[in-house]
Amino acid sequence: MAFSADHWALAFGVLGNIVSFIVFLSPLPTFHTIYKKKTAEGYQSIPYVIALFSSMLWIYYAFLKTNVTLLITINSFGIFIETIYVGLYLFYAPKKARVQTGKMLLLTVVGGFGAIVLVTQFLFKGVVRGQVVGWICLIFALSVFVAPLGIVRKVIKTKSVEYMPLLLSVFLTLSAVMWFFYGLLLKDINIAAPNILGFIFGVLQIVLYVIYSKKEKAILKEQKLPEIQKPEVIVRDENTNDNKKFPELTQEQIIDIVRLGLMICKDKVHVATCPHGTKCEAKVDENTPKLQTVDA
C-alpha cells in the first residue's frame, strides 16, 4: 500500500517530535555543569527564553489550524522544559545576568505573547488570523535558530567551544530537516520555511565546533609541560672490569713500583743496628715522623 502525502507528513511529524524532544533535552549537560559550578557565568539565557516564547506561539498557531496536532504535543513539552531551564539559569546566574534575563522574559513571554494574542483576536478573524499568527511564528522560529549565533560569535572571538554544546547543534539540524519535510508535505510554508535557515545555521555550528575543538587540542598539546625526568641511578659493580679506575698491572710493573717505594724510603729513613740485641730507635729525618721503639 502506497503512502499518501498525509501519511508521510504524519511520519515526519512523529520523527520531528522525537528529535525535538531530544533537542529540548540536549542542554541538560550544560545545566549539569552550571549546577556543579554553582554559577551560570559565561552562559547565555537568550536561546532558552526565545525557545520558550517560540513554543508558546506555535501552540497558539496549532490551535488555529486543524491538521497540525503534532505541534501541540511537542511544544507543550517545550514550554515545560524551557521554563525549568530559565528558572535554573535565574537561580545560578550573576545579578547582572539575572536582571537582563528577567527583563527579556517580561518583554517577550509576558508583554510580547500577550500583545500578539490580544491583537490577533480583536483585529483578525478566521483564516486570516491563522495566517498572521503563522507569519509571526515563522519570524520567531528564525529567531530560535539565530539566537545561538551569539554563542557562535563568542566561539570565533575566544577560539573556544566551551560554551557551545555540540549536542544542541546536531539535534537542531536534525529537527530542522524533519520539520521542513513535515511542513512541505502539509503545504504549510510557515512550518517549512524557517527550518531551511535552521538547517544552515545548524551545519555552521557543527563545522565551527569541529574546527575550534581541533585548535583547542593542538594548543593544549603545545602548552603541555614536559615530564620531569628522574635522575638516572646507575649501580655499578666495583669488582667488574668496566669500573676499575686503574688498568690491571703486570707482575713486573708491581715489582718496579715496590722498588721505587723502597728507594724513597731509603732516602728518608735510616734504621740503626743494635749490637746488643736490645731495643733500638730508628733514626729519621727531620721531615718524617718519629718511629716507636720496637724489640729486636
Rank of each mutant, 00 (worst) to 15 (best):
V152Q: 03
G150I: 02
A97E: 12
V19P: 00
L291D: 02
R129C: 05
E232A: 13
T33C: 12
C265G: 14
R259M: 10
V271N: 04
V233N: 07
E41W: 12
P47M: 03
K279S: 00
C137D: 11
G16K: 02
A51Y: 10
F31P: 03
T240Q: 14
W58C: 01
G13F: 04
I34Y: 02
V271M: 02
V14A: 13
C274V: 07
F181I: 00
I191A: 08
I254K: 12
N239Y: 09
I264P: 04
L118M: 07
L25T: 14
F21Q: 03
I196H: 06
F77M: 06
L220K: 06
I136K: 09
D242P: 11
W58H: 08
V161S: 00
K36T: 15
F63D: 05
I84T: 04
L15C: 08
G13K: 08
G277M: 00
Y60I: 02
G112L: 01
Y92W: 14
S20K: 05
L25N: 12
V146H: 10
D6W: 11
C137Q: 09
L220M: 11
S45T: 05
F246D: 14
L52W: 08
Q131P: 05
M164C: 09
C280E: 13
V170H: 04
K36F: 13
P148T: 03
E82D: 12
L249D: 15
Y43N: 08
A218H: 03
T293G: 10
S20G: 15
Y163F: 07
V110S: 06
Y209G: 04
V203K: 00
T158I: 07
I136S: 05
I200A: 13
F181W: 04
Q100D: 15
V203T: 03
S160M: 06
G13D: 06
F171H: 05
E252S: 14
T66C: 10
V294H: 00
K187C: 06
A62Y: 09
K38H: 04
S143A: 11
V132K: 00
F53A: 08
T293N: 12
E227K: 01
G114E: 00
M56K: 03
F181P: 03
F77H: 06
D188P: 08
A218G: 09
F53R: 04
D237T: 05
I84E: 01
S213L: 06
T33Y: 07
L174D: 01
L28R: 06
T278M: 02
L168S: 11
K125F: 15
P29E: 05
E238Y: 12
T120G: 07
Y163A: 10
Y61K: 01
E162F: 04
S143E: 13
Q251K: 12
V152W: 05
S143N: 09
I196P: 11
M263I: 15
A62M: 08
F80G: 13
T250G: 08
P94Y: 03
K38P: 03
N239H: 14
Y212V: 04
E248D: 15
A176L: 00
K224F: 04
A192E: 12
K230M: 14
P148S: 01
T66S: 13
W179F: 11
E248Y: 13
R98I: 00
I34W: 04
